[in-house]
Nucleic acid binder design. Structure first.
Length: 300
DNA sequence: ACAAGGCGGTATAGATTCTC
DNA sequence: GAGAATCTATACCGCCTTGT
């Protein structure tokens, strides 16, 4: 099994601000702008809060409700107002160089993406939403996606079927281009869990926070077992030993300034299985959708 | 094998806003 | 209104990927 740490949502260039932590402590990873997407920012919501106004405040009008939103990964049915598709299921598209990296790393069904993003607390004022002044910039895990299988979106047939339902079926896309589908339930260590195969954490538990307390957001404090010394492989993009430092409180990692998908081969890091189990046990996550319909299209 | 592209990050400076 | 804090725009850096 492989674990992929995948950065998603607004960043310093796409969107240009942090993703909000709402006053109730919930995380809202924002889709990056994409004019080819079938979805608009004005169609998105969470917990009854419309994204249009919140986004106008936080970006000072740079990102408008009429702009296209790259809803990917698509983890929550209710993120889109009036989602009527009875066959909706979580999806996650990957393409181009990022996907090339994943294939090169030997990604296969059963592997698990953990999504993280740049998050900061927001508050309401007389003039609307804003980032809380003293709030820290942190990288925080906000969701997951286990690979059940994937569809080749370079095939016209698949693009036509998914046109209204996923950004990767729209516009000009780099090759390779695939759409990942998740199993109904997350499987960890061969055991079926109570969590859906893909979903999002509803709040923040300490295990989800990657950034070292008080540190810059690219300075991570990870569990001790993460250190690559004596292991047969290392987190991809992070082979330089100077990035790693063993400390009493854990392993410090200076995150690379580029790349979006960091792959860890858990065959060489068996401790990760317990860590994953604890992460999901502690975290509050969206409940599994027992009413899910069967998957509409055959595996390609 | 090499060069170029792409892009997320940091550093910096100037502008703006906040606080007293 | 002054100084501090914060925000914004810009330049620069690093480095994997792709194209030649």
């Amino acid at each position: 099994m492989k674990l992929v740490l995948s950065r998603k949502g607004f960043d310093s260039s796409a969107g240009g601000c942090a993703n909000p932590i709402l006053p109730d402590g919930s995380l809202w990873p924002l889709p990056i702008p994409d004019e080819d997407s079938p979805f608009r920012y004005g169609q998105l919501q969470r917990n009854g809060i419309g994204l249009a106004d919140l986004l106008a405040d936080l970006t000072r009008g740079r990102v408008a409700a009429s702009m296209g939103a790259h809803l990917d990964p698509d983890l929550e049915r209710d993120d889109l107002t009036e989602r009527t598709d009875p066959h909706w299921q979580p999806t996650f598209g990957q393409q181009g160089a990022a996907l090339g990296h994943l294939f090169k790393q030997g990604i296969s069904p059963g592997d698990l993406f953990l999504f993280y993003g740049w998050f900061r607390e927001i508050e309401t004022t007389h003039s609307g939403w804003r980032f809380r002044k003293s709030a820290e910039d942190r990288h925080i895990l906000f969701g997951w996606f286990q690979i059940d299988r994937w569809l080749d979106m370079s095939r016209t047939q698949n693009r036509n079927r998914w046109q209204a339902r996923h950004p990767h079926a729209h516009g000009t896309r780099a090759n390779p281009n695939v759409l990942f589908l998740a199993p109904k339930r997350l499987r960890l260590g061969g055991e079926r869990t109570r969590f859906p195969g893909a979903g999002s954490f509803s709040g923040i538990t300490p295990g989800q926070v990657l950034t070292e307390p008080g540190g810059a957001r690219g300075d991570w404090l990870l569990p001790s077992w993460f250190h690559p010394e004596g292991r047969a492989s290392v987190l991809s993009y992070h082979a330089d030993p100077k990035r790693w430092r063993q400390a009493p409180e854990g392993t410090r990692l200076r995150n690379v300034n580029r790349g979006q998908e960091f792959v860890l081969d858990l065959d060489h890091y068996p401790e990760a299985h317990d860590w994953l189990h604890q992460l999901f046990t502690a975290a509050k996550a969206t409940p599994a959708h027992d009413s899910e319909k069967s998957i509409p299209f055959p595996c390609e």
